[in-house]
Amino acid sequence: MTAGKNSRELARFALLVALAMVLSWLESLVPLSLTVPGVKLGLANLVVIFALYKLGPRQAAVISLVRVLLITFTFGNAFSFAYSLTGAALSFVVMLLLKKTGKFSLLGVSIAGGVCHDIGQILVAMAVLGTAELIWYLPALLIAGTVAGVCIGAAGALVTARVKL
């Protein structure tokens, strides 16, 4: 049957979107942010990185976008949508470009993704609040993004190496 391949792809796609969404939700249950808003591990990025390396950029982009949309419709509002979308988009574009250069391993790509996610969110926050004072939070967010990137990257590398599609 020729339908077999397509349905398997669709099922895999749906599974990854669901996984990304559940990871986002799980993460929202455990607030890591103590004093700085927006600090989190970015577990969903694990799925995006996995898709980026195993399925290709287009699929990874769609998974990331659909996750942001679903999370917004389920838990969020217009503002959280703006933060999530900008963070996710900036992080994705930078990860894609870094991966394309071939100069970084998955770990480096993940670090860049984590850091850019935080930068994207703080840029939106600055625009929404109309204040540049938020730059004050940037150092903490950069460090948090690097740590999160290492964690997610290490896990992502193991998963990518072990899971056969």
């Binding site: 970084f104 391993s105 770990l107 480096g108 860049a112 150092p139 950069l142 460090i143 190496a161």
Partner: peptide, 25 residues
Amino acid sequence: AWQGGGKVKQHRNDLLLAAAVLLLA
């Protein structure tokens, strides 16, 4: 494997990237 199983040069670049970000911070 946890570093993405890449080449030595890639790992050096990963480190440089992390260092650059922390320096910026």
